[in-house]
Amino acid sequence: MSARANKALTAKLAVVVVAMFGFGYLLVPLYDLFCEITGVGGRTGTVTESTAALAKADVSRDVTVEFTAATAPGLPWEFHPLQRKVTVHPGAVTEVFYLARSKSRRATAGQAVPSVAPFDASRHFKKIECFCFTSQQLAPFEERRMAVRFVVDRELPPAVHTVTLSYMFYNVDAAAAADSTATAAATGEKT
């Protein structure tokens, strides 16, 4: 038996181990990309106001859009949509409102995460303006009406008649949120 050969093979296998550890982490961006492409996880799309304005509404089709809302534990807010559902034509820009009200005596901040079901509709649900683009800060007991402008694009699969948009608000650190909102606003960055 040769100690050399053992060492060489051990080294090769150790490389595999390290590579697989890295692969575990690589799964994170891969999963993200996969969701982006397929709409898994209910990722929604975004579109600019001007592009959306170019599209013509398909008045021959009605799509029902339903709204739900929830807050994660740890965020002392009341949060709900101001309309249960709306009927829209694909291609037409629509605006709806949500209401958030802080029940806290301190300044709080939340980040809303949207999700659309069914998955094959999520890519076709495009937001122009949304309170989820940045984190929201509420002063003690502040109440805020927040808008979402969206368009359901005309490529929405014909089998889909109802789309559900849901938001979950998560607690984010108020100070840090103020910081990042400031930069986001400065750079016009959207998430």
Binding site: L13, V16, V18, M20, F21, F23, G24, L27
Partner: peptide, 9 residues
């Protein structure tokens, strides 16, 4: 060696 590192990750 292929999957234990993934669990570790």
């Amino acid at each position: 060696i292929a999957v234990m590192p993934v669990l570790a990750g």
